[in-house]
């Protein structure tokens, strides 16, 4: 160890006489040299550590790279590939991949690449927003149920009730009831976006709530919660600072599964014709349109299917890596 390695303000433990004791000779090592020494590394920022741990998870890095690629492609892609996804080039209908249409063109001659990008934008946006909604709702209900014993029964029975509701008829009714109102207030696209996000969010928070409740119940009995209460911590601070960070990993896992679930549910809704209007592409809608031509043009199912699967997979890996990176016990030193 030289002075150069040592950060300022943290003096080296001096070896008396400036001599480093020779361990191999088995000679007496000066006492103040073997005494308790602090960790060698200088104080470092927590986020640097998080980033380092995240980077060491290969799958997470690959997932993050792919997810960023997808997001960039659907956000910026239309600026480069300027064909309107609704433009009908009737002479190109049902053609395979070509220079003019790299992913081919559909039964009306619309460019598949442009439609994939436009569809991806909707699907990813729906997935993220619906996941955030479901996650906040699930976490809120789970924490309240786990922390306050008097709320546990009512909230968990509510969760059971939602789990028991038949999902598709419920969505059908919601779309029937609110589509018109929302469409007139926010315009057809935004209206249906809100409707779908809320519908998915309201019907998929239950697993998160159950997982979070279970974890909160376990964490609540740990001694550090009692210790925190014994220094006079308020309930809200106890939940925010001591309990939530410790249930972060199941929440992260729920989040990644939630995005995947939301994209797939949106696909299913569009597939059933309950989602976005027919001329408004989403990945699910593209999949739905392509199934009619499955036997003649199987590649048209392939592209949106691949995009959905890979996005879901990459998000799952990101969640896995994040969970490891955010847990100081796994992160280690």
């Amino acid at each position: 160890m030289t002075d150069r390695d040592q950060p300022e303000g943290f003096p080296v433990h001096p070896a008396p006489g400036g001599r480093v004791p020779d361990i191999e000779t088995g000679g007496a090592v000066p006492v103040d040299f073997v005494q308790d020494r602090p960790p060698e590394a200088p104080p470092r920022s927590q986020w640097v550590d998080v980033w380092r741990q995240f980077r060491s998870h290969k799958g997470a890095v690959a997932g993050a790279a792919f997810f960023i690629f997808i997001v960039l492609a659907v956000m910026l892609g239309p600026l480069i590939w300027t064909i309107d996804p609704t433009y009908i080039d009737i002479r190109a209908r049902n053609t395979g991949p070509s220079l003019a249409h790299p992913f081919g063109a559909d039964q009306l001659g619309r460019d598949m690449l442009a439609r994939m990008m436009a569809g991806g934008r909707t699907s990813v946006a729906v997935g993220m927003t619906a996941m955030l909604l479901a996650l906040s709702l699930g976490t809120l209900i789970g924490v309240l149920a786990g922390f306050f014993r008097s709320l546990d029964g009512p909230l968990m029975r509510l969760t059971d009730l939602f789990l028991a509701l038949p999902l598709l008829p419920l969505l059908l009714v919601m779309v029937m009831l609110f589509r018109q109102t929302l469409a007139t207030n926010f315009g057809p696209e935004t209206g249906i976006f809100i409707l779908i996000v809320v519908a998915i969010g309201l019907t998929s928070w239950m697993p998160t709530a159950r997982i979070v409740r279970g974890d909160v119940l376990a964490i609540k009995e740990r001694e550090f919660v009692l210790a925190a209460r014994s220094i006079g911590t308020t309930n809200s601070r106890l939940i925010g600072r001591h309990i939530l960070p410790n249930v972060l990993s199941p929440i992260m896992v729920s989040a990644t599964l939630g995005i995947a679930n939301a994209i797939i549910t949106e696909s299913a809704l569009s597939f059933l014709g309950l989602g976005f209007p027919p001329d408004f592409p989403t990945w699910g809608r593209l999949l739905y349109d392509a199934t009619d031509y499955l036997q003649q043009y199987p590649e048209r199912v392939f592209w949106p299917g691949l995009a959905i699967s890979l996005t879901v997979l990459s998000v799952n890996y990101i969640g896995d890596g994040l969970r490891d990176a955010l847990d100081p016990r796994i992160r280690g030193r």
């Binding site: 740990r222 001694e223 550090f224 009692l226 210790a227 925190a228 600072r241 001591h242 960070p245 410790n246 972060l248 847990d327 100081p328 016990r329």
Partner: peptide, 10 residues
């Protein structure tokens, strides 16, 4: 229990 009386995430 000093092992469990401290919050592991801080």
């Amino acid at each position: 229990e000093p092992m469990t009386s401290l919050n592991p995430v801080y």
